[in-house]
Nucleic acid binder design. Structure first.
Lengths: 138, 138
DNA sequence: CGGTATCCCATTGGATACTG
DNA sequence: CAGTATCCAATGGGATACCG
């Protein structure tokens, strides 16, 4: 992750995924949506977005909630998502420091789609496990 | 990727993402859905699923359609998705070899959710780019 | 508390060559 | 055509230490 490079390509020369698909070019590597997709679907991006659906969180709250994430990756992924305008970071100038993170309206839309996917996976897990065992036996 | 290890955890001791979230445990690393999520949201998994929404494809068709993927990663990711029961592989015993890949009913459901996400990214890109520039100036 | 900086290992993934 | 095998480069990501 940490695709800190600015999204490549200007607004005008953007070619839609669907158009690229039609052209048989699907996402050939220079599409500007690739960066955003990468941030959102990254290992921790998914979890952060879903976690923030429950509301505003502080750094440590997120870290606790998302078991297994390191400070480094949490900070990095939050920066990526903030850079894409999906997460809003608010820092209060007090001591000890207080910072919190909230989904932007844009981020909310993204998170809801991600949740649709994770919910589906969750509810389909039993079926997936069955099929896995079936395949195993074959 | 290539999480070829069988999904950890039996069917019964599965704890839902939502339940883990409530517990503040969100996806602590031993959740069996992690494997599936990883396969689906992986760099190439996303693209393969979306590509297959257009119908059955042969190996080389996919490779051409998804610009930039290596043979190795295409084979590996297809195996992962097949192992999860999302993609059906059919091999015809002719020479030269002919193999094709199709979404299973389960895979179709997954792919549609993934597409919802990629469609959203695509249509929101202009807004994201604007916000990016705004943030840049700050 | 909420980070950043550094180091370092494990995994990802591309290029190439080879095979049924 | 549809892969597998091998090798190597790039990236991901954890541990630790330090800072405002």
């Amino acid at each position: 992750m940490n695709t800190r490079d600015p999204l490549p390509g200007a607004l005008d020369d953007h070619v839609s995924l669907k158009e690229r698909l039609r052209r048989g070019e699907l996402f050939s590597g220079d599409c500007p949506s690739r960066g955003v997709l990468k941030h959102i679907t990254s290992r921790w991006g998914v979890l952060i977005l879903v976690a923030l659906l429950a509301g505003t969180h502080r750094f440590s709250d997120l870290r606790r909630k998302i078991g297994g994430i390191s400070e480094k990756m949490l900070a990095q992924t939050l920066q990526d998502l903030e850079g894409d305008g999906l997460v809003i970071r608010k820092s209060y100038d007090v001591v000890p420091p207080h910072v919190d993170y909230t989904l932007s309206p844009l981020g909310l839309e993204a998170a809801q789609r991600v949740e649709a996917l994770t919910d589906w996976i969750e509810s389909s897990l039993p079926r997936i496990m069955e099929i896995r065992e079936e395949i195993q036996r074959t």
